[in-house]
Amino acid sequence: MTAHRRLIRRTALAVTAGAAALVLAACGGSGSGSGGHDMGDMGSMTSDSSPSATASAKAGAHNAQDVSFAKEMIQHHRQAVDMAELATSRASAQEVKDLATKIKAVQDPEIKTMSGWLTSWGEQVPADMAGMDMSSSMPGAMSSDDMDKLKKASGTEFDKMFLEMMVKHHEGAVEMAKTQKADGKYGAAVKLADDVITAQTAEIKEMNKMLGKS
């Protein structure tokens, strides 16, 4: 009797262990059933589909031209804003003051936008080069002597000098923007370049009209 009971007990333990193994297998399956996920599935959920990976991919969709465009156009815009700020106190014609206000209102936010791109790409935002000679480093930029002359002018003399300098400045920005459109990769930067071409080409015509050239 004792041997018979031992045999029954061993058989029951074996059946229990087998049932437990089946339950564990069902819980740790491939996830094709209801609610189950294995480690492979968890890995796929936390890789490319994660927000950080998506943001990284978006930030990486740029090339060297995009970086160069952002860095140079930030400096170019900063100088235009400096010139526009001078016009608010030195210009005599209201239309010149209005134009300067519009230039500043457009280009200040674009500086912030491009600075944000550089930061997202792990690039340094360029230091402000106000007062330095930028005429040899980018198209249409004023030299330090040009800026000094503009600061000393006032009234109608300032108006004429400002308009002539800003036409040259805008022409340089349009040239830079065309290069970006041709060689850039980052969609938002190419779109901003297109906006620069459209807006500043229109302003060049407006300023030439003020100068009596059209």
Rank of each mutant, 00 (worst) to 15 (best):
A55V: 01
M129K: 15
D128A: 01
D146R: 09
W117M: 10
E206G: 06
M132H: 14
E72Q: 06
K97C: 12
A17W: 07
D66A: 07
D133T: 13
A64M: 08
E164N: 05
K213S: 08
A100K: 02
G31F: 08
G187F: 14
S68W: 06
K205G: 13
D38F: 13
Q75Y: 06
D66M: 03
S34W: 09
Q79G: 00
K97D: 01
D194P: 03
Q94A: 12
V190E: 01
G36E: 14
T46N: 13
A193W: 00
A57G: 12
D159Y: 09
I204R: 14
T11S: 09
D195T: 03
T198S: 15
A130T: 05
D195K: 11
Q79Y: 00
V15M: 15
K191S: 10
G155C: 04
R90S: 00
G60S: 04
D195S: 07
Y186V: 11
S135P: 14
L24N: 06
A14R: 11
N63C: 06
S49G: 06
Q107D: 07
G33C: 07
I111C: 10
Q180Y: 01
A57N: 10
D98P: 00
A12K: 12
A127K: 15
L192H: 14
A80R: 12
S144N: 02
M42L: 14
G122F: 12
W121S: 01
F69K: 06
K112D: 09
D128T: 02
D133C: 03
D38R: 14
N208R: 10
V190M: 01
K178A: 07
T11E: 07
M45W: 15
G131V: 11
A25Q: 01
M45G: 05
G31Y: 09
S44G: 09
G187D: 04
S136A: 11
D66R: 05
N63L: 03
E95R: 13
A3L: 09
A59T: 01
G29H: 04
Q79D: 00
E72T: 03
D146A: 12
G31T: 15
A57Q: 09
A173W: 04
V190Q: 11
T88K: 08
G212K: 15
N63M: 03
T198C: 06
A25H: 01
H170F: 07
K149F: 08
L86W: 03
E95H: 15
T119Q: 13
E175M: 13
K205A: 13
G40D: 08
T201I: 09
S115K: 05
K149N: 14
K149H: 13
G18L: 06
I74Y: 01
V67Q: 12
S32I: 13
E206N: 04
K97I: 09
T198G: 05
L7M: 12
M147W: 11
T198Q: 07
I204G: 02
D195E: 08
T16E: 08
V96Y: 03
K152A: 03
A173D: 00
H37I: 08
C27V: 13
A202G: 11
E157A: 07
S50G: 02
